[in-house]
Design a protein around this nucleic acid. Structure first.
Lengths: 327, 327
DNA sequence: GAATTCTACTAGAGCGCTCTAGTCGTGTCA
DNA sequence: TGACACGACTAGAGCGCTCTAGTAGAATTC
């Protein structure tokens, strides 16, 4: 039509499939350039039996999710899939984010740090392949790709005990993704390395605000308070440090603080935050591989039955926020 | 068909337009619930003359872009538009992000902190309405919604001079969005308030790493070095502080540091960063309003001719990273 | 009580692609 | 030389909606 060719030929050229001569191919591309034509994604996906899209649900403003997105984009590109992002914010719940992606007919879903109850995830997985990233969950048909949170927390406790700390408090993440595992890792290590000591759990959370609140609680504890604090994540640790500093408490001289995630800021805040590094690259790559493997497999054996879990080992990164206790 | 009704009726019900009885409406919705049916977005957009989607290009991991996204989601919802996100990462250039959105047939584009040269933006705006957020650019047909960067920087200089500082260095943002305006505001204020003083410009940038490098440069300056530093943004300021601290320089006693953006972390890092707050809510709302106004206007007068600029005033937030100079 | 208006629906074309099932001209082989 | 295969292309149905035009029946009007 445009370049004196049929629509079908144009389709052949743009899909890059065999069936067009070199000459025709060039003619079509030249005409397309002339007309500033580009195939309509919507129509493309409609016409095809498969949409070739993967939906990603992430928390807007969550630093570590950003790191994951970067890795996912790369992996998706090389796997030949397209990513459709759907953000979760304070006013846009996860339900809505997922709903959008389902209506978009994504072939699979990647949920970063999902907040869904197990049953909801299971139900979702019946409809479409789902990979839960960062959040371990035992639901049928749901793949999990996560960091070994318990192991990370164990390293934290070992590090602190190695420095000579006898009292360690955990700023707990409540029901956030991975929080249960970190709590469990903390408890196991504390019980092993500090027998007879009571565990101190202070409610914390994901944000600086949560850390700040936890700091108030820590300041209110009977003295001597634990000389070391393991926070649920980096922002929580930074919020904690900020408040205790304002109260005249020195870090790390008076209290050692450890974070979790190793977000980019961690290396630059304060004296440098000792933390546990999660490998965004590896997590993203594993998650995408998991999902595409399920999609590309024969429908027969990909029938939800064989769910899997990929666990990436984290590494302790020692910076300046931890030191031996005492004056 | 499904509930004993025609496809057209289903369409009427799901679009929420008049033309269906209450009874039929309920019957359709009940059947949809039963079948777990939801309208296919792709087909929906195809069948309509307008797609009802707005494309957003943002930098993945950029804290302030996250704040903007949150606001944009809300505004888009209440304006009856759908947002399509396209992220820019180190391996996914802005071209590609925009290309995706064009192929998706978005009705308008919101570019957060775009890096495109002016000509490229102008060309883009000929094809589709474009709003450049944060990045001031004089291109025909391109609307701009931004913070008054120059004014913000003027406030910074006034604050520092008010504290008694005589030498102020700027950690320059190079060609980043808004950098030229901040530089100009800095220069104008410095010339006015510190006449006869040489301007000190140190190459900085958007990230902690850039700030760290700038710190090395500042440490290498002939003593006495400027006793105050105005950074291009918060991460840059934090990176700067980190490095000079490690070199034994105290903040704010030995050097005052000011950031820009007021990202969430700014209040929690160090002694609390003095910074300039950009209003994400207002910026997002203004950007969306701008775009939808153009789209909803009659085609006649929306013909690219009347481009506009919305400038939001920023506010200085004084925290602990600034103080009077000297011992 | 026929004409008119309204409400509640349905038929069917169209959106811009993909993809199957062709057609047409050439080259290959027995 | 006829049968067959092959590469290069085209026709046209189909994807799941939207939306215009149209119909049937009930309510209203004069």
């Amino acid at each position: 039509m445009r370049a004196g060719v049929s629509r079908a030929l144009v389709s052949i050229v743009f899909r890059g499939v065999p069936g067009a001569s070199e000459a025709a191919r060039e003619r079509v591309l030249a005409a397309a350039r002339d007309l500033d034509y580009r195939p309509d994604t919507r129509a493309r996906r409609l016409g095809r039996s498969r949409t070739g899209t993967l939906g990603v649900v992430f928390s807007v403003g969550h630093a570590f999710h950003g790191d994951l997105l970067e890795s996912l984009y790369e992996e998706a590109e090389s796997a030949g899939y397209e990513l459709v992002l759907s953000g979760v914010t304070r006013s846009r719940p996860e339900d809505q984010a997922v709903e959008t992606l389902l209506a978009e007919r994504c072939e699979g879903l990647l949920l970063l740090g999902s907040d869904f109850p197990r049953a909801r995830l299971g139900a979702l997985a019946e409809r479409v392949p789902v990979v839960s990233v960062l959040r371990p969950v035992k639901a049928p048909g749901v793949d999990v790709v996560r960091t070994d949170d318990a192991h990370g927390m164990r390293q934290v406790v070992e590090h602190l005990v190695g420095l000579g700390h006898k009292g360690i408090a955990l700023l707990d993440g409540g029901r956030a993704a991975g929080a249960a595992q970190r709590r469990q890792g903390f408890r196991a290590a504390a019980r092993r390395l500090l027998p007879g000591r009571d565990e101190v759990l202070i409610p914390g959370g994901l944000t600086e605000e949560d850390g700040a609140q936890a700091a108030e609680a820590w300041l209110d504890l009977a003295r001597p308070a634990p000389s070391a604090v393991a926070a649920f994540n980096d922002p929580c640790a930074l919020g904690f440090i900020d408040v205790v500093r304002q109260a005249g408490v020195r870090v790390p001289q008076d209290v050692s603080v450890v974070g979790f995630d190793d977000v980019r800021q961690a290396g630059y805040a304060h004296v440098g935050l000792t933390t546990v590094r999660q490998e965004a690259r590896q997590l993203g790559a594993a998650a995408l591989r998991r999902l595409t493997a399920r999609l590309d497999a024969d429908e027969v054996d990909a029938d939800g039955s064989d769910m899997g879990e990929v666990v990436i080992a984290p590494a302790l990164v020692v910076r300046g926020s931890t030191a031996a206790p005492g004056r």
